[in-house]
Amino acid sequence: MVLDVVEAILGFPPVWQVLVVGFGFSLLVSVVAVWFERKTAARVQRRLGPYWASPRLGGLLHLVADMLRYAFQQVIIPRGVDMTPFLVAPIVGMVISILPVAVVPFTSNPQYWPLPPGAMEYSLLIALAITTLPPIFIVAAGWASNNKFAVIGGLREAFIITAYELIAILGFLAVAAAVGSFNLAVIAEAQNPVKWFMLLNPLAFLAVIIAVAMSTSAFPFEIPESESEVVAGPFTEYSGLLYALNMGGAYMRRFIYGILIALTFMGGWAPYNPGEGIFAGYIVPSLIVTVKALIIVLAISFLRAVYGRYRLDQALDIAWRLTLPLALLGLALGIIQAFIGLA
């Protein structure tokens, strides 16, 4: 009886997709991404980077060791904090950051879609709607910390949200307009095999990449956590596991955005055609999508080695004056493409 209920819950596609792909993969990807970020930066900076934890793996286990350290570190909660939001914000923030996976199709085979085909029609909109939620918890974490640096960091995060959200959504909608559907599966299928929107609509792609970099505080937009003025921004008062959740959350969000970009701009499972059965119909295409998402994540990670950080007003300036017109042009291009029937 109880087992049946548990099985029913876990068997519900959105749930196991969130657990396996969302949580499992994104944990793995964030470990790999952090490792890659450190290794790339080290190479460009003529260093070795993580090495001694496992010389043969190039120090990959260093990150596992880091995670273990965070997991077992003492969590210090200062007396002055607002306890409930302080504890709840990082946990809920991270859970919500991986929630968009619940509606993402990893295959064109409707049998393995997480939602029924009717609901899948709005999957892009639902996913985008959920991606706009986690920053609220970052702001809440900063506010609850009762620390001046944390408050300033949270405020900066709030400023940045206003800048990138519109761009990201417009950029994604450019593709939806071109295809004429909000269904991620349809969008991905329309690009098969090489008619990728990355090439058809580079303006929207660039706008979305910049928006993702801003959203997940990657360089050159690592402003809320800017170390040299606000220590660790909203996460200044956090320690141990809660800090790891906060920091890991950014990488997970980057990965989720990567999945969305892979589906909308990089052809999803293209050039592969999902077939029947769990292996050919679900596992292979989902791995292809994950690899594409990983490439996006790693490309954004590489920017750390090249850029410093923009000033807050300059970042907003770039967002509103340069990237928003870019996204609008991308949207216009998408509409034109839909009109002439290119896509």
Binding site: A41, R46, F219, Y307
Partner: peptide, 15 residues
């Protein structure tokens, strides 16, 4: 460099 968040400049100059 590190004040501006440019870690590569930090490592290069120190190197």
């Amino acid at each position: 460099g590190i004040f501006l968040g440019h870690s590569t400049m930090y490592m290069w100059a120190m190197g």
